[in-house]
C-alpha cells in the first residue's frame, strides 16, 4: 500500500482521508511502527496493551480528524494524542512512566551525550541496565522530553507542540535532565 501513496505527505493524506478511508489506512500503516516504538520505550506495556493503546489512539485520530490544523505537523498532533493516551493508561493501570530500551547501551549513551560531555561509554548489558535505571529515576517530565528529543528525534518546536509547552521550556528541561544524568554518571578517568 505504501508505494501507492509514497508521494503524499501526512498532511495531504489527512485532507484526502476525509473523502476516502483508504488514505486513513495509509496513515495508520505509516504510524503504527513509530507509535509502537514510542509506547514500548515509554512503558513496560505488554503486546496486548500496546495493541489496545494503538487502537484507542487511532480511534481518537479518526474521530477528531477535523480538529487537525494543517499548520502543525501531523506527526506532532498524533504524538500529542498518543502522549495523552499514555497518561490515561498510566492512570488506569496506576503505574508510573517507566522507560525501556531495546537499543544497546552504547546507542543510548551516544544519543544523549557527545564526546565533549566526557562521559564514559557503557558497553555491556549490566551497565546498560544501570543507565536505564538512572534514566528512570528522573522526573516524568524529564524522561518524556529526553525520549522525544533523543529517541523519537523530534525538534524543539515539535516537542513544544506535543507537550503543549513553550519551546524555551523544552530547551530548559532538556538541559536540566542532561545535567541531572551527568551528575550521576562516571566521567572519563573516574571509572
Amino acid at each position: 500500500m505504501s508505494s501507492t501513496f509514497n508521494h503524499l505527505s501526512d498532511e495531504a493524506l489527512v485532507i484526502e482521508c476525509k473523502k476516502d478511508q483508504q488514505y486513513f489506512a495509509e496513515l495508520v500503516e505509516r504510524y503504527v511502527p513509530k507509535l509502537t516504538h514510542y509506547i514500548r520505550r515509554r512503558s513496560a506495556a505488554t503486546s496486548d496493551d500496546i495493541d489496545d493503546l494503538l487502537q484507542n489512539i487511532f480511534i481518537k485520530v479518526y474521530r477528531n480528524i477535523n480538529e487537525y490544523d494543517t499548520r502543525l505537523l501531523f506527526s506532532s498532533w498524533i504524538y500529542r494524542i498518543a502522549h495523552n493516551e499514555m497518561i490515561d493508561w498510566y492512570r488506569r493501570e496506576k503505574r508510573r512512566a517507566t522507560l525501556s530500551f531495546d537499543d544497546d547501551a552504547h546507542d543510548i549513551m551516544s544519543k544523549l551525550f557527545t564526546e565533549e560531555d566526557h562521559i564514559t561509554r557503557f558497553s555491556n548489558e549490566e551497565q546498560k541496565a544501570a543507565m536505564v535505571q538512572l534514566l528512570n529515576k528522573l522526573d516524568d517530565k524529564y524522561k518524556e522530553i529526553l525520549l522525544l528529543r533523543f529517541f523519537e528525534e523530534k525538534s524543539y518546536e515539535e516537542i513544544a507542540d506535543i507537550l503543549r509547552i513553550p519551546p524555551g521550556t523544552v530547551a530548559v528541561r532538556i538541559n536540566r535532565a542532561k545535567k541531572q544524568l551527568q551528575k550521576k554518571l562516571p566521567k572519563h578517568g573516574t571509572n
Partner: peptide, 26 residues
C-alpha cells in the same frame, strides 16, 4: 492494492465495528 499489516487491519476493523465517524468541523 498492496496488503496492509494485521495491526492496521485490526484498527480499521475496530473503527468500523464501533461505527466511529469523524466529528463535524462545527
Amino acid at each position: 492494492m498492496e496488503p496492509i499489516s494485521p495491526t492496521t487491519e485490526k484498527i480499521l476493523t475496530a473503527i468500523e465495528q464501533k461505527q466511529v465517524t469523524p466529528r463535524p468541523k462545527w
